[in-house]
Design a protein around this nucleic acid. Structure first.
Lengths: 207, 207
DNA sequence: TGCTTTATTGGTCGCCCACTCAATAGCATT
DNA sequence: AATGCTATTGAGTGGGCGACCAATAAAGCA
């Protein structure tokens, strides 16, 4: 990919280089898994020496953690854009996206990160932050819809949690039984949401 | 732990040694994680040379996969014993166990295995088999309860899937937010089950 | 009792990893 | 055009891993 003549140096501003490294690490983590985010692998991708990546991230754990955060923040913004046209439409779009095959990499990333958190404290902190962030964004959406009377929900926070639990549960099978996309498990997140928001069955199906 | 004088050999029947290895690997996988199931680690635990474990498992992947299967089969038998005193009682016991801290290691193991399945085809096959097995056992229980009129469920298979999805979703947080055991997420598996089986709220609470 | 079988040892090899650090060269400043 | 700062190189260390294999000794059999 990004290759240069050996020995050739490209000197960049630290901030730029750093974000370049994080972005690359995030892409690797999302598509190939967080265990592939190594100093060497990222350096290869960028066409630099491993030592350089090590210079910006003296502890590799930090790089993995930032890669995860970078990737999930991007995804969240794509899934629940802050400026949206109405809670109902946003929700439909949300479930359309999360139930499609394009979301598989994101499911894999969360599964990956949640397991890896067992061994990597730094990553664990980042994962917990993102869990909270995703939940809050969902809660806000539910609260907004409830305020305008589109949804009927007495406990937006609890509803957000339960919807996310359903999504996490359904996506737990992404590495083993991803082909069963038509199974009862695939519909569960949406039906849970419809029930939590006081909507008729099928209301949140993509339009 | 299990230590012998260096050089001392204990010769066992192949079948015995093999199952000894699998049992040890399963224990390590359950308590420390499947990535700790290495030829060296298992050999140390048994007080033998790594080469011996390699002799019984020429491919390490096979050992990891068998360790997982061994551990989950044990757990399933403890959770849903074949000879039980009534579907209702069995279900109460099931949720009592799965929502306790003792179940955390099992949650971690499933999370671990599902993620690792991304890279290890042999493990993936074993995980898929166990997913099917757990679901079938749950389905049988639901079907039995429906037959005797204790439960009201039109689709035992779908109900089993949805209950397991709820459990998997709730236990996804085991490595990051395990302390939130009182959260809405913790109750979800049970309430989903009560709803699926046509039971009143709280019916499945441990007695 | 001696012989054969084979379970087990004990080492080697190559691979990939994070981490360290002195030397080097790109860039901005003067 | 010379200088100073520092981003970057390049090589090395040590550790863990799976895989491989000839030599060895324990156990069953003649």
């Amino acid at each position: 990919m990004t290759s240069r003549a050996p020995g050739r140096r490209v000197r960049k501003a630290p901030a730029e280089r750093r974000s370049e490294i994080v972005a690359t690490a995030a892409r690797i983590g999302l598509t190939e898994g967080l265990e592939c985010v190594t100093l060497r692998r990222v350096a290869d991708e960028l066409g630099v020496q491993p030592g350089l990546v090590g210079h910006y991230f003296p502890a590799a754990d930090e790089l993995v953690a930032e890669a995860f955060t970078h990737a999930t923040m991007r995804e969240l913004d794509g899934l629940l854009p802050p400026d949206s046209d109405g809670p109902l439409h946003t929700f439909r779009r949300f479930f359309g996206l999360t139930s499609s095959a394009e979301f598989d990499d994101v499911s894999k990333l969360w599964l990956n990160a949640r397991h890896l958190s067992r061994y990597r404290p730094v990553l664990r902190e980042h994962v917990m932050k993102q869990e909270l962030l995703w939940c809050r964004r969902l809660e806000e959406l539910i609260a907004a819809g409830t305020a305008t009377g589109v949804f009927a929900c007495a406990d937006p926070w609890g509803a957000a949690i339960r919807v996310l639990v359903a999504i996490d549960g359904a996506s737990a099978y992404v590495n083993t039984s991803a082909d069963r996309r038509g199974t009862p498990a695939a519909d569960m997140p949406r039906t849970v949401a419809e029930s939590e928001l006081g909507l008729r069955r099928g209301t949140l199906l993509a339009s």
